[in-house]
């Protein structure tokens, strides 16, 4: 069965930040909320690599496991979504998330967090597809239009791949074979092979 995943090919990522602005543009994500970001490791050194990262829509997602109000859920495409109506802004998902995906607006000057916001794989949320409520809370639902997350669709060097895990894994493997090297799919082990699962 299809299982949606993200894969960032660090050999191709040039830190152009298209994924970041495309996401912001598509979902009108406000200043300070970064559903997706590009992290550069070893900045300025020969080993430098940039990796675009957002919610990886983990298997056995730890955020879902720790949410005290069960506001996060995973659908049968593997996409991890959440309900902003239920979220209480406790921050547990942020502690559990291996990729720093959950983001919080500030709810008050008392330091508390507002409703969690994160990458939806451009699949909206629990509201009715294409409804105004869905758009306002979660952004566009591209998946329901048969489109992939915009970040991957616009990636300038096709470094960021999204879609069926087997297919994007295949695209990546072909590249590795052709160029003869690859530094591995960053985050896949953590995201898709869970705690101690799947070997």
């Amino acid at each position: 069965m299809a299982r949606m995943k993200f894969l960032c090919d660090a050999e191709r990522c040039i830190e152009c930040n298209a994924c970041v602005t495309a996401c912001k543009n598509e979902h009108e994500v406000p200043w300070g909320i970064n559903r997706r970001r590009v992290v550069t490791i070893d900045d300025g050194l020969p080993s430098e690599r940039s990796i675009s990262i957002a919610c990886m829509h983990c298997t056995d997602a730890p955020c879902i496991a720790v949410c005290p109000v069960d506001c996060i859920y995973q659908n049968d495409n593997g996409i991890v979504l959440h309900s902003k109506d239920l979220c209480i802004g406790c921050g547990y998902c942020f502690y559990a998330c291996p990729f720093g995906a959950p983001q919080y607006p500030q709810a008050s000057n008392f330091g508390s967090r507002g409703k969690m916001d994160k990458c939806t794989f451009c699949a909206g949320g629990p509201e009715e597809n294409h409804s105004e409520a869905e758009y306002r809370k979660y952004g566009r639902n591209r998946v329901a239009e048969g489109k992939l997350p915009l970040c991957a669709e616009v990636c300038s060097t096709r470094a960021l791949l999204a879609g069926d895990g087997e297919m994007i894994g295949g695209i990546y493997e072909e590249r590795v074979i052709r160029r003869g090297y690859g530094s591995g799919a960053w985050g896949w082990q953590t995201a898709y092979y869970g705690r101690n699962l799947g070997g």
Binding site: I41, D60, E173, Y193
Partner: peptide, 22 residues
């Protein structure tokens, strides 16, 4: 979902704490 690990083992990087610059 978990079953296909062996199929794409080449893609697996060891997990580790990674920090960079944004």
């Amino acid at each position: 979902w978990l079953g296909s690990r062996d199929e794409n083992w080449e893609m697996i990087r060891e997990r580790g704490f990674l920090e960079g610059r944004v």
